[in-house]
Amino acid sequence: MKDKLIHRIKKIQNLMAKKDIDILVVVNRENLIYFTGLTQIECMAVLIPLKDDPCAITLWLDADYVEQESGLKTFGYFFPKESLGSKVVERIKAYGFRAPRIGFERYFVPFAFYDVLRQNFPESNFVDAADLFYRVRAVKEPNEVEMIRRAAFAVCKGMEAAIKTIKPGISELDVLAEAEYAMLKAGSNGLPFRPQIVSGNRCLLTHPHASTKLIEEGEVVVVHLGATYNGYCAKMCRTVAVGEISAAHEKVFNLLLEAQEKAIAALRPGSKAWEVDEAAREVIRRAGFEEYYLDVIGYGVGLRQSEFYPIIGKGRQDIIEVGMVVDLLLPTIYHRDVGGPRITDVIYVGENENEILTGYPRKLIKV
């Protein structure tokens, strides 16, 4: 097994011991990438016992490749005679377990897969281990940061293409097409989420995506893009003014930019997530808009575009550490008359200073 994978396995085994988990069953793509180092994977699981060596299970055609590239002992299954679930059961029993305490990723396990485990281990306890995975992935290794940096480079190229394309009369989808093409040419391996190119009143939607709507003079356009490199994500959001926009919208953008700068300054090793949130929230509060602002302003970034540790928000006790990568700020001010503008960047937490990985100009962009 490769040294970096050994280190990751040991880290999560230490967390398993604290929750009395005998064996972890890993099937989520992001965690499979983390524990194998491979991105060309489908129909696969990794088993991590507390006191034994891990193994991988995959389709028999891929078994040699997975074992050679990851260094994990790998067992193939013959579909449809065998299934991933049945092979996982077989290997758990081969470890000597009869009624183990099994940890798995609560949000990403198909019911059919879970049902096979439950039927074969009726006396076992099944434990939600999602927080273990997010905590072990929260502090990035140098090579992980480099992957995110490469993804961020592609995002910047996509943003550059989008800005050049935006003008009255062009559709949101046309802007997205140019941005996606530019990101792929810049090395992106694909999209981590459905990108958002939204204009006018559509900017107030919480999870919008590009449509056939034509961009109009005097509108605000929000461009929210993401890219991946070897599984790792970067994202960025910028606000574009098409011609003259209202003074109120411009004021809101500058308010969000100030809030972001305060949050980035507060994002220091040893600080708590709620303190970072409060640094931004105080700016919004002073302007009288707190009731229109969300309770979460950022997440960790890595193999997911929004990882669930750390979460930057009200009351969050997550401790910021050197090597974390987070995004700030996520929300706009959700006020019908002045809301819509947004700004988001991916930030690496350094020992002495932070690095904004998405190095594209952060001012209001006017076209």
Rank of each mutant, 00 (worst) to 15 (best):
G300A: 07
K185F: 04
D64Y: 11
L364P: 10
P100Y: 07
M44D: 07
Y232L: 06
L184D: 08
K10G: 02
E307D: 13
K314W: 00
F113T: 11
K81M: 10
G169H: 01
Y293N: 05
A259Y: 07
D3G: 01
N28Q: 15
S70D: 07
A152V: 09
T58F: 04
M236A: 14
P341N: 07
H209I: 06
G288L: 11
E216Q: 12
N201Y: 00
A279G: 03
G313H: 06
R91Y: 03
V109Y: 11
G302Y: 07
F308R: 15
P195F: 08
L72I: 11
E144H: 09
R98V: 13
G37F: 13
K363R: 14
V127C: 04
I264M: 01
L38I: 15
I215C: 05
E250D: 05
K11T: 04
T358Q: 05
H209N: 02
V198W: 04
P142K: 02
A287E: 15
D115K: 15
A186Y: 04
L47I: 07
L204N: 08
F104K: 07
K272I: 10
F253D: 11
A99H: 11
E30C: 10
I163M: 12
R202N: 09
M324D: 06
A17V: 04
R304Q: 13
V223Y: 05
E244F: 06
Y107P: 00
E90F: 09
F193K: 01
V326T: 06
Y292I: 11
G85C: 09
F193A: 07
P361I: 12
F289H: 15
G85R: 09
A248R: 13
R106P: 00
R286Y: 13
R149K: 09
I163L: 15
R137A: 14
I215K: 07
I245K: 09
E69V: 14
S70G: 06
A130T: 15
W60I: 11
E146H: 12
W274R: 15
G298Y: 02
K10V: 01
C233A: 14
A151L: 02
E67W: 02
V338A: 04
R98P: 00
Y134E: 09
M159S: 03
R316S: 12
F108R: 13
V242F: 00
E180N: 10
F121Q: 07
I215S: 02
E69P: 10
G187T: 08
I215D: 03
L267D: 04
E290A: 15
E353Q: 13
Y65N: 12
S211M: 03
D52N: 12
F104Q: 07
V301S: 08
I33S: 01
L15K: 13
A17E: 12
R29W: 12
D62R: 11
R91P: 01
R202A: 13
G226D: 04
I356D: 02
I197K: 00
L364W: 02
C233N: 13
G37H: 08
E67P: 03
Q40L: 13
I48Y: 08
M16W: 02
I9G: 01
Q40W: 12
E90H: 11
Q119M: 12
L225H: 01
